[in-house]
Design a protein around this nucleic acid. Structure first.
Lengths: 219, 219
DNA sequence: ACAAAAGTGTTCGATATACACCCATGT
DNA sequence: ACATGGGTGTATATCGAACACTTTTGT
């Protein structure tokens, strides 16, 4: 029979992104105990009994960010030796993306979750900086051939908001006319009868996403 | 303090690909005991003490396929409930790609590793068919923007061999002139002074890969 | 001589990029 | 009236797709 070997601890960490003020932000908590106490870390925790990692990630999002049913996908399993000073440990990490503005209120979690710009992060606990970097890479890659970016927006959005999502994630400016032309020929979004007004300028038409699993090329 | 929860078993499975006879082949072993006895499965096993998953994957490749230092990357962590009838279990899976023809001899492993065409696989143990499908997707995706495909070839190769790698993995035929034009303008390979002769036709020039982490677009 | 794969250019359509002005609203 | 972002078209360059014949070797 197959012999049992030492099983490492299994934790789940979630890189939750949001776009705000033209910036890609990530949710971090403050470590209350143990190694890296007082430092910022990704929200996460041990697996509960009978839980899949996906369920655990959902639970973390619910508890730390008060969000449910958001876009989430598995990122990578990190098991570099020494990544946790307490002993052998896996982090099964997930990336998630929520619409801005966040429809949900503040958390009263003891770990005080807060949003930070991904551009200027202080030193983080564990290898969490590396995990965030990898998550950004993944996001950027998928932006170009999936509809992942629409998860950063509410169901109705303007073309300028959509363009900003692409600009922030890709970290480059895009031409407005070319962007709109491409969106037009991709036929993935449709105009709605709503407009966004009240902003001391011309009201913008609002759009909604048509196809779920679409393909987008070359921004 | 953080409470310890039930830790699932952690196994490592490797999807090892090779291209042979114009076909994408995967290495499978025969299960000697336990669930799915007698069926084909991916080579894999439990983690040893102090081992990272990457080291375990290397060990599996060494023992089952007799290969070392081959291209390998982490694929995904599968933890669907019930994937192993013995209880909660993770499979941390890896994809690997070896050059054809294989420079290494036969294995005398009791599990009798053998190569199978990915096109006509009988029912496999566990969720291994799903893992293989996902591995092919990954391979296909990365083929288009990395140099991953070159790992299916020896250091020196002909353009026809290279084209076949792309054709087999993408599962479509490519135009010879367009393929060569693109390879030419990407400037990723360089002609060598060697030729491949002895095949009852005109000898082919052999090439080698130049840049390691190159970018390839649109096949 | 013949079989077999190696090698080689051009045309055409599609797509990406660069670029500047008028419009509708709130103040 | 003015400030602010919303909205729109054209010209050029680049890239992808389609397509057929000659060359060099082994037998």
């Amino acid at each position: 029979m197959t012999k049992k070997y030492l099983q490492p601890d299994v934790t789940v960490d979630v890189v939750l992104f949001m776009i705000e003020d033209g910036d890609l932000k990530v949710l971090l908590v403050e470590r209350e105990h143990g190694p890296y106490e007082g430092m910022r870390a990704l929200p996460g925790g041990y697996l509960h009994e009978g839980e899949t990692t996906r369920i655990a990630a959902d639970r973390v999002l619910h508890n730390k960010a008060g969000v449910d049913n958001v876009y989430i996908e598995q990122l990578y399993t990190f098991d570099t030796p020494g990544r946790d000073p307490r002993g052998p440990n896996f982090s099964i990490s997930y990336v998630a993306l929520v619409p801005s503005p966040l429809p949900i209120g503040e958390s009263d979690d003891v770990q005080k979750p807060e949003w930070f710009s991904t551009k200027k992060l202080s030193k983080l606990a564990f290898d969490h900086q590396e995990i965030i970097d990898y998550a950004i890479e993944r996001l950027r890659g998928k932006l170009e051939y999936t509809t992942i970016g629409f998860n950063a927006l509410p169901k109705l959005f303007t073309l300028s908001q959509l363009q900003q999502v692409y600009e922030v994630i890709l970290d480059k400016t895009l031409d407005k006319r070319n962007f709109r032309k491409k969106m037009d020929q991709l036929k993935m979004i449709k105009e709605t009868k709503h407009v966004l007004s009240g902003m001391r300028q011309r009201p913008a038409k609002m759009y909604s996403l048509l196809a779920k699993p679409g393909t987008i090329k070359n921004f």
